[in-house]
Write a protein that binds this DNA or RNA. Structure first.
Length: 647
RNA sequence: GCCGGCGUAGCUCAGCGGUAGAGCAGCUGAUUCGUAAUCAGCAGGUCACCGGUUCAAAUCCGGUCGCCGGCUCCA
């Protein structure tokens, strides 16, 4: 083989020999014998490369298509560069910060004296469309970091300079399309013409480097897809999500309200919302009792002295509400742990008593910043399905595993997809390294034991210990923390909790805070969006509506209604003087699982005629048969845990 | 808390310096009807709140409160 040629491999058996310095694009052509217009970049020995980049060594090359996950990432990243170009052309004084691709799109942050208006966005979008038409190539070049610093300093791009100054690399890469140059690792699409479908979706303030002490930049969000059809599909999904929004469904289904006169972040449950919560709470009590938890109830108001001892006053004061009664300062609980500590302390505990698991549906108040409130998903008063487990260090891992199993079991019943994260020691934290290591590995070992995937979030733990968080997604795919399992080293110590070991000596128990659903409010919000308001029968606030064809069947319908009430079915009677179709439509819009139709034929036969929410008519049956059917359906939907009449 | 947008009837929205509107919901009456909207009539508003500009403010300006989308923070 000559010195100026190299052998390259494809992803399967493809082989080719090319000259040194051949571009990635030409290598692909040699390997696969074709040029696919969907190919926008390639993986060279696993690293992403531009098609225009030359190859000098024997490598393995694999194409990246524009509609693959990695391809979409590249496309969106390139689109963010095009947006930045348009912004720089229209607003030359704007300084650019960062512009990555994100889940479902991209953004770019700019420092501008005046925030962008929606009209600005239209202009930017229009200019971007022109740039796309120009088919400007993305050109890569490399320079030393110090050269790059000088380069961007001359341009007045102070944010790029700051980024570069914080980098370690000796060489950095720059990308240019048209007159716009950006510091960037790449790769990019070959030219701007590859952008077939994009849309700017919004503008918002965002702190430089995500730190609220830094200046606020203007962030423009957008998205891009490989073709117009998929973009359309995505925009439709956003429309669909609006219809699933729990705030909208909460009003339409008469579940709850927020009231300006009451105050922000305070939920008022209407009868139909309250009954769902009652079902969830009844379900939770049963599930906890059968797993060896004891139900306890603590007070809402505790003396401020106690919050000082627990550390909340020092670490959590801004989020707490305080009040004064008879010259004594009290704090409203933002967490439920304190009373549980005091219950533990109420007598001498033996190692034989452990583990102790205290469960409380505890209502807490947290003064959340006004801008973060969000329907039921982020409120100021909420009820946690909270528990504190006190155990010996030896029992810790099994206890964690027990909680993980509990979470998996419950999520399985609701059919939620979820993601788990382990958060490790943050900078600002207390406790010894040994404690942290032991607890962190206990969490990780337990997850490995159970065999479910998880992400590690370095430095994201609570100041008092590492934790496992379980995240659920709302209708818009935003992630919300629900279940959490947190180790705590400080509270057992601050409250001097002990147990007597087999050696007759006092020992310090280990403590876990944990919630399964998290907050009832947040969980209900996710629940509403997950089912789009069409709750399964075991959770539906109204399981059936009895409706007559004409007023002639009213007396009979009232009897049927009463029989269903007696069987503990959540049932309503629609005795309005309306046509059947109208009543069905209303029940349908209320997403009631069953409509129980009663006409002359049913009166005659002493039966009822149920119609399911999906339109299926079940035919005539007796009330008893219908009750059995509902009971069965509740049991099936809740994996056997909940039947009729749970409360 | 920060950046931007928005607050008109119970709900969805129109009106954007010159007498507050529609559809749905509600009420009354008629109709007695078989699986997603029967017909007719009636009633319903401090245009979020406070202040300013103007002969005149729902409309323009400022402030407050609330909501929405983000950022930061979190169950």
């Amino acid at each position: 083989m000559g010195e100026d040629v190299i052998e390259v491999k494809g992803s399967n058996e493809e082989r080719a020999t090319v000259k040194k310095g051949t571009t990635v694009g030409d290598v692909l052509k040699a390997l696969y014998g074709k040029v696919d217009s969907r190919w926008i970049a390639a993986k060279v020995n696993g690293d992403l490369y531009d098609l225009s980049r030359p190859i000098y060594e024997a490598v393995q090359v694999e194409p990246v298509a524009i509609d693959s996950p990695e391809g979409l990432d590249i496309l969106r990243h390139s689109t963010s560069h095009v947006m930045a170009q348009a912004v720089k052309e229209l607003f030359p004084e704007a300084k650019v910060a960062i512009g990555p691709s994100i889940e479902n799109g991209f953004y770019y942050d700019f420092d501008v004296s005046k925030p962008f208006t929606p009209e600005d966005l239209e202009k930017i979008e229009a200019r971007m469309a022109e740039i796309v038409q120009e088919h400007l190539p993305f050109q890569r070049r490399e320079m030393s970091r110090s050269e790059a610093i000088e380069f961007f300093r001359k341009m007045g791009e102070t944010y790029k300079v700051e980024l570069l100054e914080n980098m370690e690399d000796g060489m950095v890469s720059l990308y240019q399309q048209g007159g716009f140059v950006d510091l960037c690792r790449g790769p990019h699409i070959p030219h701007t013409g590859y952008i077939k479908a994009f849309k700017l979706t919004g503008v918002a303030g965002a702190y430089w480097r995500g730190d609220e002490r830094n200046p606020m930049l203007q962030r423009i969000y957008g998205t891009a897809f490989s073709d117009k059809k998929t973009l359309k599909k995505y925009l439709n999904f956003l429309e669909e999500a609006k219809r699933r929004d729990h705030r909208r469904l909460g009003r339409e289904l008469d579940l709850f309200q927020f009231n300006e006169e009451v105050g922000p972040g305070m939920v008022i449950y209407h009868p139909k919302g309250a009954i769902i919560r009652q079902i969830l709470e009844a379900f939770e009590k049963k599930e906890h009792l059968r797993r060896g938890y004891q139900i306890v109830i603590g007070p809402t108001l505790l003396k401020t002295e106690l919050w000082k001892r627990s550390g909340h006053f020092d670490n959590y004061r801004e989020n707490m509400y305080f009040t004064e009664v008879e010259g004594q300062s009290y704090g409203i609980k933002p967490m439920n742990c304190i009373a549980h500590m005091l219950i533990y302390k109420s007598k001498v505990r033996s190692y034989r008593d452990l583990p102790i698991r205290y469960f409380e549906l505890g209502t807490v108040h947290r003064h959340e910043k006004s801008g973060v409130l969000h329907g039921l998903l982020r409120v100021r008063q909420f009820t946690q399905d909270d528990a504190h487990i006190l155990c010996t260090p030896e029992q810790l891992q099994d206890e964690i595993k027990g909680v993980i199993d509990f979470v998996i079991d419950v999520m399985g019943i609701f059919g939620f997809p979820y993601e788990m994260e382990v958060s490790t020691r943050p900078e600002k934290s207390i406790g010894t390294d040994e404690d942290w290591d032991r607890a962190t590995s206990a969490l990780i070992n337990a997850l490995n034991d159970v065999g479910i995937p998880y992400e590690i979030c370095e430095g994201e733990g609570a100041f008092y210990g590492p934790k496992i968080d379980v995240k659920l997604r709302d209708a818009l795919d935003r992630r919300w923390q629900c279940a959490t399992i947190q180790c705590d080293f400080t509270l057992p110590e601050r409250f001097d909790l002990t147990y007597v070991g087999p050696d007759g000596q006092k020992h310090r128990p280990v403590m876990l805070h944990r919630v399964i659903l998290g907050a009832m409010e947040r969980f209900l919000g996710i629940l509403i969006e997950h089912y789009a308001g069409a709750f399964p029968t075991w959770l539906a606030p109204v399981q059936a509506v009895v409706m007559t064809v004409t007023d002639n069947q009213l007396n009979y319908a009232r009897k049927v209604y009463q029989q269903l009430v007696d069987a503990e079915v959540r049932v309503e009677l629609d005795d309005r003087n309306e046509k059947l179709g109208f009543k069905i439509r209303e029940a349908q819009l209320q997403k009631v699982p069953y409509m129980v139709i009663v006409g002359d034929r049913e009166v005659e036969a002493g039966s009822i005629n149920p119609r399911r929410r999906d339109g299926k008519q079940l035919g005539m049956m007796s009330v008893g048969e219908f009750v059995d059917l509902l009971e069965r359906e509740c049991r099936e939907g809740s994996k056997g845990r909940v039947g009729l009449g749970i409360i």
